[in-house]
Design a protein around this nucleic acid. Structure first.
Lengths: 93, 93
DNA sequence: CTACAATGGGGTAATTAGGGAG
DNA sequence: TATGTCCTAATTACCCCATTGT
């Protein structure tokens, strides 16, 4: 089966997710989605990958008794440790 | 077959139902409404599904006359079997 | 080469997610 | 039980303009 040779533009992906084209660019910059760059620097995305993301079928680890890890942070770099971010915060109002 | 690919943001759905966006998030967390997550973690809802819920086509057994003799339990009390899940989705976490 | 739409990059507001308490 | 509100962090949306693509 085709691996999805069809490439989509940021605007197409943005329309599929109902987000801004800039947001799609951020996903690529964060490594959350594969991106192919044109000689000019613009990005192209694989239709198959986008579709998998849309349905969340990227990883089927749905088990009631098993704790599936959150689809958070799929790249090599951790955005920011949710741990010591705000030591002793939380709704203390 | 266009199932209404248009996706709505939590704020839009909340405005349609006249509730807080937080409430819509709870519905999605409870699996009462299908939700698509963006790579960033935000949720998007299908316009068609929201419309069906607004019409009350999700569950039609409210035409009962005995409201007084009906306990506060409507439908399958067991959260394990949401039968009429039209645009079936998967409850993630 | 010029014209127009879209994209990329940076920066700042608005929205959203998640938890806790009423 | 279900819904609305408060707080913090993360994500997203809209502003600018230079460059790319057709």
């Amino acid at each position: 089966m085709d691996t999805g040779d069809r490439l989509l533009t940021p605007g197409e992906v943005a329309a599929l997710f109902r987000v801004d084209p800039k947001t799609v660019t951020r996903w690529a910059a964060a490594g959350r989605i594969g991106s192919i760059r044109t000689p000019g620097g613009h990005r192209r995305f694989r239709e198959s990958e986008v579709r998998a993301l849309l349905e969340g079928e990227g990883m089927l680890d749905e088990v009631d008794d098993g704790i599936a890890n959150r689809p958070r942070n799929a790249g090599p770099a951790a955005p920011s440790g949710p741990g010591p971010a705000g030591a002793g915060n939380m709704g203390m109002h």
